[in-house]
Design a protein around this nucleic acid. Sequence first.
DNA 1: GCCGTTTTCGGCCCGACTGTTTTCAGTCG
Length: 568
Amino acid sequence: MLNEKVAKILNSIADYLEMEDDFFRVKAYRQAAHSVEVLTTDIETITREGELIKLPGIGQHIAGKIEEIIEKGSADFYEKLKEKYPVNFEELRTVEGLGPKTIKLLYQELGVKNLDDLEKEAKRHHIRRLKGMGDKKEKALLENIVFARKFRSRNLLGVVMPLAEEIKKRIDDLPQSRKVEIAGSIRRRKETVGDIDILVTTTQPQDIMDYFVSMDLVGEIIVQGPSKSTVRLKKGIECDIRVFDEEVFGAALMYFTGSKEINVELRKISISRGMKLSEYGLFKKEKRVAGKKEEDIFQALGMDYIPPELRENRGEVEAAQKGELPSLIKVDDIKGDVHLHSNWSDGKNTLEEMVQGARFKGYEYVAITEHTGSLKIANGLGEKKLIEQALEIDRLNDELDNITILKGAEVNIDLDGGLDIRDEVLQEIDVVIAAVHSGLNQGYFDLTRRIVIAMENEHVDIIAHPTGRKLQKRKESEMNLNQIFDVAQETGTLLEVNSNPVRLDLRDMNVKRALEHGCKLVVNTDAHSLSQLNNMQLGVGTARRGWAQKKDVLNTLPLKGFLKALKD
DNA sequence: GCCGTTTTCGGCCCGACTGTTTTCAGTCG
């Protein structure tokens, strides 16, 4: 799919235009890029069918650019802008305090094109001489370059969320604080997050601010004001805190949860209804009509409450207005984690420890699914070992109350689509997960074919981490997902939403696509240690972002129902 | 550059903080 590429170019055009004074054209291109990004169908089909200009924010002009990109791989307009501003905009924007206007100034006056140039000019004290610059600004830029280099990428949700929860707890424990919430992309369960946003209500803002900036987790204070402070934590992640009155907390939480795109949308709707929405509430004239709770604001805007995970302006606003929002799956709906490893293969804990951990979580069942033979690197089990493990599982099932252990395996899909365990053995196993662990870059057609062949094997129940991506390391493999979704639907093969913080695969948009193809899912942790059992909330968050309901996710079924679903 | 249940022209979301400024521009979220 070219969607990603098209969106990227449109966004780049917006970047360049930001340096000129054409603010509204920038907005237009950003909106168009967003429309392309959130598509669940591929843009070439839409273009072929002449439906482009029906997408929100795409008119004749931008549609022309998109057609050009699809035909030629790029657009003249974009190439010309690149020539005009040969700067690495994306790289420079990672420097805190460096925006489009300053980038333009630095390029035109000093020829700065990238981080190295910027560092050089700052060290020579050339920047302070420019209009609107000064020695403080120059010094700040110099310091921020270091962080831009070190922490260029966003951070994994699974890494940042525990840190955010720790800070929340500490502030919660202060006698001066009333309500404390984590907002921002963490609350939306986005797979990567830029920073941590904490909101507080208190009668003593100064005390909270003083405590916040002096925590031992803090490396450096970036901004400190009476209602807002920003610090950089020692781990390199930025953390904002904001203080609000109880009366406006809902409006603030809504605003700082975002996304930016839905905020814009909701403000427009407010205006069309003769009201004004800000982080201080929903106002009719000067009077605040809602603000204490998010629910009140949605209601006053004439729509259903939109759960944070859906707030991306991907159609949820319209659905909320029509009362057609899905009732999203919850962590508590999960009845069993059916992708677990123990030290029989490459896990850290014993089989019994893993089962006890799952039991403690209140699951009704689990499946132990070790790697199999050909995956030597993960100490894959051969057929003999698998049978041996089955006896151990029988023994534990006799011993333990309140939980049932299913026999499983995570078998490898080889280069031809074959599996590394014979059908006669697979037949004896309750939960057969198949996954690609090698040859991920084999190419679009071959990889698609392998997975299709595996799904057509009657013993295969689940395809684990279908696209093989690893966040910040490895892109989704090239494959025909439409075909894979169709075959999954036809064969009744379940697709996994893998909860590992690095995987989260299927990712949110692909969950949505899979559901549109009529597929069913399972959400698993793929835990290799006890602590990783906690990742379930990340996978469920991802499923929620993909609009998944309880009925779409089959490990929400009680044991009997789940086993029956596997057989069907 | 896009859009329209007041509009095919004239709008396009809003506020806090900082640094460089004598009243505001730039950045961030």
